[in-house]
């Protein structure tokens, strides 16, 4: 399985993403600089890491969503490639239109940084199959703008089509319908505020993030789940 991580100025979880992908797939991901980098042709999964791309100027993710590499990201998604956007990566995916809705300032106005209990809405997705039989997982969150918003019709569609991957067990940011992660129509693009790459059993504590990467390996190689 081949993976790539897009790096923007201000990305700060790119190294964690690199480590998590290398551990899960046994192969180091291609690190792709947003400006002149190339997503290798046979990439299975592109990860957009967390951080503060372009210093969150204008709106979180707005500038990154108009970076040169984004045309390649669209092409990758259009041919059915997997995309995982975490935190700022989720904000960027929403800004590119690859995922519906938008992430706005936390309702509390506070930056929240803590282990977060999440309900796995369905283990029937490429990103969550390894969570089968597990209703709740704990994955860290760390964000200021994680309040997911979309119009009611969009929210109904997301729920109706089983495209809510994770919900907060106790909503930390005001997100509509407690949504913590959403999938694209074809189920191959996931945006989520929690950081699975920060819970893979290392010094950071917690292992619940591993399942997400294992699920993806399974989906691509057919070796798990």
């Amino acid at each position: 399985m081949k993976t790539a991580v897009i790096v923007f100025p201000g990305s700060n979880c790119d190294r964690d993403a690199q480590v998590a992908l290398a551990e899960a797939t046994g192969k180091a991901p291609a690190m792709v600089w947003h400006k002149d980098g190339t997503i290798p042709d046979d990439t299975d999964l592109v990860m957009i890491p967390g951080g503060f791309s372009y210093g969150d100027y204008l709106r979180c993710g707005a500038m990154a969503a108009n970076s040169p590499v984004i045309a390649q990201l669209h092409a990758h998604a259009e041919r059915g490639g997997y995309v995982l956007g975490v935190c700022n990566g989720f904000q960027i995916l929403a800004e590119t239109g690859l995922l519906p809705g938008a992430l706005v300032r936390n309702a509390s106005l506070n930056f929240v940084c803590k282990p977060q209990a999440l309900k796995v809405e369905s283990a029937n997705t490429a990103f969550t199959s390894a969570y089968a039989g597990k209703e709740e997982v704990t994955i860290p969150i760390a964000h200021h703008d994680g309040n997911y918003m979309a119009d009611e019709a969009t929210l109904d569609t997301l729920e109706g089509e089983g495209r809510v991957a994770f919900r907060y067990a106790d909503n930390p940011n005001g997100s509509a319908r407690d949504i913590a992660g959403v999938l694209s129509e074809n189920g191959r693009v996931l945006g989520m505020m929690p950081h699975p790459e920060r819970a893979i059993g290392g010094h950071e504590g917690g292992t619940d993030g591993l399942g997400l990467f294992e699920s993806l390996v399974g989906a691509v190689c057919g070796c798990i789940g």
Binding site: L58, A62, N66
Partner: peptide
């Protein structure tokens, strides 16, 4: 439309 505003919000 493309950058300055996010017309979702």
């Amino acid at each position: 439309e493309k950058l300055l505003a996010n017309t979702v919000i």
